[in-house]
Every structure is written in structure tokens, then in C-alpha cells.
Simulated scan of single mutants.
Amino acid sequence: MNLTERRKAATQLEIARAAAALFAERGSDGTTAEAIAERAGVSLRTFYRYFRTKQDSVAPLLAFGAGSWQDLLAAAPRDLSLPDALEQAAVSALAVRDDGDVESFEWTRGLLRAAAGDPALLAVWASVNQESEQRLVPLLAERAGDADDLRVRLAAAAATTAIRVAVEAWAAGDAPADGAGSPAELAVRCMRELTAGLGR
């Protein structure tokens, strides 16, 4: 990206972080575009330059998380089996390294709880997961060698679903962001269940 594109992406991500924090704190009904813009330190006009609705504004943050997982998968050693590479990338992406990670997970928990009562917010979550699955297909095709297209697409769907279900299950409960019951621990369980047929 050029400098202008990087600045635009940085602004969108800052707005998304502010939106996620507000949805987590106040729920959907208590969050407005005006409040998100104020929290992000931008004008309401700037907010609407980038996003149509308050719900849309969280998409860059959710997509950033999915992109991090895919980057880790792309960098995984080539001698790892596909299931092992998927699992290791998921664990690394969902690991808690500092207080900032804990805060991000709490935003995610609050955001997904808010989405349960907001169809538009739930649609953004579903859309980000669908886009993540589509971006995963060429990554898996490259690693899978001679695997046919159907198998690669099923693997992408299974891996994306494993992460989604793990994060949703964690968000619905009260487990900490790290350790037993964490997103990373649940992702491993889901991944192993859904990729069991891929071989090791």
C-alpha cells in the first residue's frame, strides 16, 4: 500500500477499535456512530466517509484478526502437515501475549454478545468469516499440492468454522482469554474435530 492507503487503513482500524470497545461496554443500543467517532477522535463526517453504519465499523478489526491468522499460516514451515499448520497458526493468532491482547479479547467477547441482539452486527461477523474462508482457499491450495478443489474448499470451510465456533463459544462463557477454556484452547479442539479427515 502507498502512504495514503496506509493512513486510510490506520484510520479505519482506529475507528474499528473504538467501535468494538463501545459495543462491548454499552451494547448495540447504547452505541451510536457519534459516540464511535468521538472515541476514535475523528469527525462524524470522517466516520461516514469510511462506514455506512455503526455496525460496519467493526469489520476492519475483525478482518485484521483473520488476516493475522492467515499470515501465520502462510509462514508455517512447509514440512508441517496441513492440519498441524492450521492448528499452530490458530494457536499463535489467538495467543495472549500482553494486557493489550486481553483487552482485545474482552472487546471481542462484548462485541459478539452485542451481536446476539443485533442482526446487522451479526451480519458483519458472518461476512468477515465468509471473506476469511474465501481468502484461505488459495493459501491451502498452495500447501495441499495435488489435492482437488473440493477438498481444499472443504478444508478452508472447516478451518474457518473451527475458529469461528471457538471464539463464539468462548465469548458466550466466562473463561479467561488464556489457559483452559480460552479461544486458543477451544480452537485446537474444534480444529482437530473438523480437520480429522485431512490426514496428518
Rank of each mutant, 00 (worst) to 15 (best):
158 A>M: 11
74 A>T: 11
53 T>A: 13
3 L>F: 06
76 A>S: 11
43 S>L: 08
122 L>R: 12
141 A>S: 01
101 D>W: 15
177 A>N: 00
105 F>L: 00
10 A>P: 08
61 L>N: 06
81 S>R: 14
21 A>H: 04
21 A>D: 02
44 L>K: 12
199 G>K: 05
82 L>Y: 03
94 L>D: 01
200 R>G: 08
33 A>W: 05
16 A>Q: 10
153 R>N: 03
128 V>A: 04
88 Q>R: 13
150 L>A: 08
98 D>M: 13
82 L>A: 01
81 S>C: 14
133 E>Q: 14
141 A>L: 06
153 R>G: 00
7 R>A: 11
28 S>R: 10
92 S>Q: 12
21 A>L: 09
143 R>W: 13
114 A>F: 10
131 E>N: 08
180 A>F: 09
67 G>C: 06
165 V>E: 07
184 A>Q: 07
44 L>M: 12
29 D>W: 04
101 D>E: 07
107 W>N: 06
142 E>P: 05
41 G>R: 01
200 R>L: 14
41 G>T: 05
91 V>S: 02
200 R>H: 07
121 L>K: 03
98 D>F: 13
67 G>W: 15
37 A>D: 08
88 Q>S: 11
1 M>R: 15
20 A>D: 05
69 W>Q: 12
94 L>M: 01
189 R>I: 15
191 M>A: 06
158 A>R: 09
181 G>N: 11
199 G>Q: 06
70 Q>F: 12
168 E>I: 07
63 A>Y: 10
171 A>M: 03
58 V>H: 02
83 P>F: 15
120 A>R: 02
128 V>M: 02
8 K>Y: 09
8 K>M: 14
27 G>H: 04
